[in-house]
């Protein structure tokens, strides 16, 4: 499957499925992001899976969630061991969890942080791979009014690796948010702005 990586046409993987692993803490929206992205991809005709890894799920507890996106039906039912893309909603998890587990030399990290990609590369102790960062906390605070990093990170992900076309993505997300926040159009606006800003502001090495 060929997708655009940060404005360069590239083959991301030999097989036909993009595998994304999300790391967050309960309440930050890792599970919602994994499922929403899968739903959005399914609306443009992709085959998908979106699922969380369940432990004692509570606010603050580490949460891992997964998304698979492909052009053919996905039959495998197992956790993602070798993700192509790792999204980190909370960088304090870098100490708590092995967020880089199974990531190859060509793997992509998208991290919610104020630090630069170079600093995060050091923190992650990475040899290969590519690191992208975006200050999702601040973006969401300014656009949505509270710290909820998942929406901006989804925007950043689409910029880094266009798993589905950006315009389709925004359109579908708008529909989803309008359904979810029927009586609060400012929340819908805020979330869309958050995604657009992160799309613009995400930076890589």
């Amino acid at each position: 499957m060929t997708i655009v990586i940060f404005e360069r046409e590239e083959q991301i993987k030999m097989s036909d499925v993009i595998e994304i692993r999300w790391h967050g803490r309960g309440g930050q929206g890792a599970k919602t992001a994994a499922i929403l992205l899968a739903e959005a991809a399914s609306r443009v005709g992709k085959y998908i899976q979106g699922f969380p890894e369940y432990g004692p799920e509570r606010m603050g507890a580490p949460v891992t969630a997964y998304t698979r996106i492909g052009d053919k039906p996905i039959r495998i039912h197992a956790n993602i061991l070798e993700p192509d893309i790792v999204v980190i909603l909370d960088p304090t998890l870098i100490r708590a969890t092995d967020v880089a587990s199974g990531v190859s030399e060509n793997g992509i990290f998208i991290i919610n942080t104020i630090e630069s990609p170079a600093v995060m590369r050091k923190k992650l102790n990475l040899k290969g791979g590519r690191v992208f960062t975006v200050d999702a906390n601040n973006i969401s605070l300014e656009t949505i009014g509270r710290v909820i990093p998942n929406t901006p990170l989804m925007g950043a992900l689409i910029k880094v690796a266009e798993v589905i076309p950006y315009d389709d993505f925004l359109k579908i997300m708008k529909e989803e948010f309008e359904k979810k926040f029927k009586s609060r159009p400012e929340v819908v606006e805020g979330n869309i702005k958050a995604m657009e800003r992160a799309y613009q502001e995400v930076k890589g090495e």
């Binding site: 499922i35 899968a38 739903e39 399914s42 998908i48 899976q49 969380p52 996905i74 039912h77």
Partner: peptide, 8 residues
């Protein structure tokens, strides 16, 4: 695996 997993 299936009950909480989103699929097409």
């Amino acid at each position: 695996i299936i009950s909480h997993g989103l699929e097409n």
